[in-house]
């Protein structure tokens, strides 16, 4: 059958590209992680699991991992809750919804560098937007949010809620509009109140959308780089040094690419573990609803 060979010809360019820039690098990264590979040195001795041992003992890395988990634990649920809440409130066939959707979506396709620059302004002491508003209420208005321990991380969290709000809302609105009316009719025949319908119909039916939003947001949040690079450089006192940025400094400031590769596999393992937990907890929930 001649079509068989033709099939290979069609997929060949993409498969070759995938091998060269997708799969071989994964193997190469694993290989690198077993060597004391330094960009500035010629010799790269084999150290076995030495890099992983170094990562295990590197308190800076663990601190970065904890920071990443903290950032993710704040920004993902908050971003999801805000988007879901607003979507539930406005989910009705309103005229002109498309215009709002366009506006909502805009911040998320913007350049992260430009977004970071705008947020630096929003958070400036005195003249920045937040401090100006605080000044109107005669509250202290000289806080430099990005250089205060505690505030800097919260600033990054708020920024991620702002950036992600539009696309998440669009997804939830699509999900809510897709729920069949018959489910609500059946529920009200059974005497379910509006609040009960929200809990028993709307939220369970949105479980797949929530799972998708949670998992993709988590993966992105655990690897966040550009906002940290632009706004805090990991400071103050390493409180916003997150894994994505930490790996960058290990590899491109200290040139320890072997160790950085080991760090990236540890990050991958953590991300996959977190995503797996999210998937399996969601699965239990879905099964419970279908059994009930």
């Amino acid at each position: 059958m001649k079509r068989r060979g033709v099939g290979y010809a069609f997929v060949a360019p993409a498969v070759v590209h995938l091998l060269v820039f997708g799969l071989v690098p994964i193997g190469f990264a694993l290989y690198l992680s077993f060597f004391k590979w330094d960009l500035l040195r010629d010799q790269s001795p084999f150290v076995g699991l030495g890099n992983y041992a170094a990562v295990a003992q590197d308190s800076g890395f663990w601190k970065a991992l904890v920071n990443s988990l903290y950032y993710t634990a704040l920004s993902v649920p908050l971003g999801l809750a805000v988007a879901l809440g607003i979507a539930l409130l406005v989910a009705k066939p309103l005229k002109g919804l498309a215009v709002f959707r366009t506006v909502f979506y805009l911040p998320s396709v913007m350049s992260q560098v430009a977004t970071a620059m705008i947020w630096i302004y929003i958070l400036l002491p005195k003249s920045g937007f937040v401090n100006t508003v605080l000044g109107w209420f005669h509250a202290p208005n000289e806080t430099d949010f990005l250089s205060q321990v505690g505030w800097a991380m919260l600033a990054l969290v708020f920024m991620s809620v702002w950036t992600g709000l539009g696309p998440r809302m669009v997804l939830f609105l699509a999900g809510i509009m897709g729920i069949p009316d018959s489910l609500y009719e059946a529920a009200s025949l059974d005497g379910a109140s509006k609040g009960r319908q929200l809990w028993a119909v709307t939220l369970p039916m949105l479980a797949p959308t929530s799972l998708f939003v949670t998992v993709t947001s988590t993966i992105a949040a655990m690897q966040v780089f550009t906002p940290v690079y632009m706004m805090t450089k990991g400071g103050p006192l390493d409180t916003t040094d997150m894994v994505g940025y930490h790996i960058y400094t290990t590899a491109w400031r200290d040139f320890h690419v072997g160790e950085a590769s080991a760090q990236s596999f540890v990050l991958l393992a953590v991300v996959m573990a977190v995503a797996w937990v999210q998937f399996s907890s969601q699965k239990k929930q879905l099964e419970a609803y279908s059994a009930a």
């Binding site: 989910a91 009705k92 309103l94 709000l165 009316d181 319908q197 929200l198 709307t202």
Partner: peptide
């Protein structure tokens, strides 16, 4: 299509506008 959990049209527009301004003003 009606969604019983949703609020009145006027409030919905107000909320959408507020969110829109929050996102677009920067």
């Amino acid at each position: 299509m009606r969604r019983d959990s949703a609020i009145g049209n006027g409030l919905a527009y107000a909320l959408l506008t507020a969110v829109g301004l929050f996102l677009i003003l920067p």
